[in-house]
């Protein structure tokens, strides 16, 4: 009898195959993919760059990690999750896409997404367009003042920032304050006439989160935490995110 436990080789390296095994439902194995192709037949990204969701999953399950590393198709799938919806086995292919995205060296991921994520990390506003708390406040107050002056039924309308104890904290996509501020007004008007008790938050007001698309999990989490904390700090009941 051996005196010591026999150890076989090195610790097994985590492969893509192991990663997707965890994505399969109820601790199942890769055989659960029926290869039916329902995912691919209803996927708008099917055929782009000679790839489709079924092929991606099969390649991963066959251990073709190298062929999948840095395959740009993972940026041409929008991770919409329709493939999960139609999959008889509910296999999470978008999560596989996310994991493949995260394997790209950060600096080599698409510049637009990378830049938007990094910009959002610069301010507590989380704005992918880099708008600061002061920028946002200025635009909101400026647009509101004009509406109050020129549209009499809305002379008392408010667009509060950091109001405590409101029912709703509303996020705003950066594109509106930065590029088309008048587009904020219809929503304010609707909230005004229904008598909603709402507010913006100076921190975390920006609705978008490109760090999620960048597959930078830590940064994604950070952005969500900043926004959630702002809602908590204002003691609001609901968080409304329009994205």
């Amino acid at each position: 009898m051996a005196e010591e436990v026999i150890k076989l080789g090195k610790k097994k390296q985590s492969t893509l195959k192991d990663e997707i095994a965890k994505l399969l439902p109820d601790g199942g194995n890769l055989d659960l993919c029926l290869t039916c192709g329902a995912c691919s037949s209803g996927c708008p990204a099917t055929g782009i760059r000679d790839m489709d969701p079924r092929k991606l999953l099969r390649m991963a399950s066959l251990g073709m990690d190298e062929e999948l590393e840095r395959n740009p198709w993972v940026w041409m799938c929008s991770m919409c999750q329709r493939c999960i919806y139609v999959c008889p086995m509910k296999i999470d292919i978008p999560q596989l896409v996310y994991n493949l995205r995260s394997r790209w060296p950060r600096e080599e991921r698409p510049k637009g997404i990378l830049g938007s994520c990094d910009m959002a990390l610069r301010h507590d506003t989380c704005s992918a367009m880099g708008a600061s708390e002061e920028d946002f406040q200025f635009v909101v107050e400026d647009v509101l003042a004009e509406v109050r002056d020129t549209q009499p039924p809305f002379k008392d309308m408010e667009a509060p920032i950091d109001k405590m104890d409101a029912d709703y904290v509303l996020n705003q996509n950066s594109r509106e304050p930065v590029t088309e501020p008048d587009e904020m007004v219809p929503l304010w008007k609707i909230l005004h006439i229904v008598g909603a008790n709402w507010t913006y938050a100076s921190k975390g007001w920006a609705a978008e989160n490109y760090c999620m698309f960048l597959a930078d999990t830590d940064a994604w989490k950070h952005i969500v935490e900043v926004k959630a904390k702002a809602v908590d700090d204002l003691n609001a009941k609901y968080w409304l995110n329009t994205e």
Partner: peptide
């Protein structure tokens, strides 16, 4: 409803350089 197709604007697509692919994707919508 849940059987609808994604338009192809999400997932960061609009911020990628893959405009031709994004248009191809969007043809379904």
């Amino acid at each position: 409803r849940s059987n609808n197709y994604c338009c192809g604007g999400g997932g960061g697509y609009l911020q990628t350089p893959y405009t031709e692919e994004r248009h191809k994707y969007g043809e379904m919508k």
